[in-house]
Each structure stands twice: as structure tokens, then as C-alpha cells.
């Protein structure tokens, strides 16, 4: 089933209204109102320090909003703790790799699956015996091509493989809202496609809302149904990729830099 970006009848899975956060005097995210619908990939772009990561932090709860609200399927989650938002279906991969460094690659993924299945309070069973969880973890590792490194410690992985694992944790969570924060940053040209294909695969699966912070224009062109531009914490543009890329604000504020990047 295909859902087009312009369907008016679908309710927004995720919505922010006048979302704002101040750090001292600095307004990092300034009254951002935006709706994200299932089946849609929204690229969030903007120069360094525009507030993209901070906007993600407000949605997934790592930072408390100064003003405004975040709604998921109509329910106000603005004040909800991080773990509860995750349980409701908000998933996040981080810009700065954020893993369990001294555990094995497999264990990193297994922990996520265990969380999703609410098995964490099982005190007297043996974790290594829960074959179903372990198999599922191997499947996720297969999808990001990390199967061969399953037994390694995270600290032994290359940067590119750590980025893959970062995304694998989000895949293992299988949320309704996927938030990718520059997933391919620092990866080599031949490594990145694995992750981009995965994101493209998610798109085919309807019902998922995908937010993607990305600098590379070719990636945005191939994946995004819509582009949201943040600039100095404010929503500077929002629309179909072609329109947004052509608009003055983007030409000035953003693309001057990303042309070099991409």
C-alpha cells in the first residue's frame, strides 16, 4: 500500500507545536511546528549548529522543552521520560556513536531486542539461553552486514562498523518513528550504501515515520519525500525536495556549504 506525502486524511504520527528550547540566552530551537506522517521520509537539513540534533533531543526526550509540545498519535508526550517515549515507538540513532563499548556487538543488539520485548525484569532465567532473542539479533546484524563481527567488542570495531551498529540498534528497536542523525557521517563511500538501502527498505514498509538529518544532497534527493530546513533554530522552509532546494532561503543558508560537502 502506498501512502503519498500529501494525503490530508492521515493523522500525523508525530507533531511538534511551537517547540522551543533555550540554553541560557541562546534559543537553539525556536518555535518549530511540524507534522510528520507515516510512510514519509523527511530530511532535516541546515548548517552546523542550526539545531537539528537539539530538535531530535526534544522529540526523543533527552532535553526538556522550554516551551511548546510534542505529540505522538495525538497524545502529549512533552514531559514523558525518554524510556517511555521509546516504548511508545520513538526510536533514535545518534549522531555521535553512542553504544555499549565493552559489550559484544551481538550483545548490543540483543539488549535492544530484549528491551522491546519487555524481558528486562526476568531475574532468574539465563540470558544466553533465550535463543529467539539471539537469533533475532543475528538477523539484524545480517541486515547491516555486521554478522562477521558479532562476537567482537564494540571498541574493536572500525568507525564505519560502529556507525552501522548505531543504526542496527535503531533497526532492532523497530519503532514507529525512526530518527536518524547523520547516519553515514564519516563512513567511506563503499560502506554508506548498506545503511541507505536499509532506510530505503523501511520506506517501502508503510506505517513508519522517518526523520533523517543528512548533509549529503544526493542522499537527500534519493530518499526524501520532503525537506525541512532549520536555520538558527527556526523552521526556514518545509516542502517537496525540488521546491525547497530551489528556494532562496536554502540556496543562501544551506546549499552554499553542502555543495562542497556533497
Amino acid at each position: 500500500m502506498e501512502t503519498t506525502a500529501t494525503t490530508t486524511t492521515t493523522t500525523a504520527a508525530l507533531e511538534t507545536s511551537d517547540l522551543t528550547v533555550r540554553f541560557g540566552g541562546h534559543v537553539a530551537v525556536n518555535r518549530v511546528s511540524c507534522r510528520f506522517t507515516p510512510g514519509e521520509v523527511t530530511a532535516i537539513v541546515g548548517p552546523n549548529g542550526a539545531g537539528k540534533t537539539t530538535y531530535f533531543n526534544l522529540i526523543s526526550g533527552q532535553i526538556a522543552a522550554s516551551e511548546g509540545t510534542v505529540h505522538l498519535d495525538g497524545a502529549d508526550i512533552t514531559r514523558m521520560p525518554v524510556a517511555e517515549r521509546t516504548r511508545l515507538g520513538i526510536g533514535r540513532a545518534f549522531q555521535l556513536t553512542n553504544l555499549f563499548p565493552n559489550l559484544s556487538v551481538l550483545e548490543n543488539v540483543r539488549l535492544v531486542i530484549q528491551a522491546r520485548r519487555h524481558r528486562g525484569f526476568s531475574l532468574l532465567s539465563i540470558a544466553d539461553r533465550q535463543v529467539a532473542l539471539i537469533e533475532e539479533a543475528h538477523e539484524v546484524l545480517g541486515a547491516v552486514k555486521l554478522e562477521d563481527q558479532a562476537a567482537q567488542k564494540v571498541t574493536e570495531l572500525s568507525h564505519g562498523d560502529q556507525r552501522k551498529l548505531e543504526v542496527a540498534l535503531l533497526m532492532a528497536l523497530d519503532p514507529r518513528v525512526y530518527m536518524f542523525d547523520e547516519p553515514t557521517a564519516g563512513m567511506s563511500v563503499d560502506e554508506a550504501p548498506v545503511l541507505l538501502d536499509l532506510i530505503a527498505g523501511l520506506k517501502a514498509d508503510t506505517g513508519r515515520t522517518i526523520l533523517l538529518v543528512e548533509h549529503k544532497m544526493d542522499v537527500i534527493r534519493s530518499l526524501a519525500d520532503r525537506i525541512v530546513v532549520l536555520h538558527n533554530g527556526k523552521l526556514a522552509a518545509d516542502g517537496a525536495p525540488d521546491e525547497v532546494i530551489a528556494s532562496d532561503v536554502v540556496q543562501e543558508a544551506y546549499l552554499g556549504r553542502s555543495a562542497v560537502d556533497a
Binding site: 526523543s60 533527552q62 521520560p81 525518554v82 524510556a83 521509546t86 516504548r87 533514535r92 545518534f94 553512542n98 553504544l99 555499549f100 563499548p101 565493552n102 559489550l103 550483545e107 540483543r110 539488549l111 535492544v112 530484549q114 528491551a115 522491546r116 524481558r119 528486562g120 525484569f121 526476568s122 531475574l123 532468574l124 532465567s125 539465563i126 540470558a127 533465550q130 540498534l169 528497536l173
Partner: peptide, 21 residues
């Protein structure tokens, strides 16, 4: 146990442990 594994995860990175639920 699965519980013990969560404790290790928290020791390793409590921020991410919270983020995965």
C-alpha cells in the same frame, strides 16, 4: 539473567540504556 545484562548496559552507557527503553 536478562536483568543482569541490563545492569551491565547501564554501567556501560546509562544514557543509551534509557534511550532503548
Amino acid at each position: 539473567s536478562p536483568f543482569g545484562r541490563v545492569l551491565q548496559a547501564i554501567r556501560e552507557n546509562d544514557f543509551r540504556a534509557e534511550a532503548i527503553g
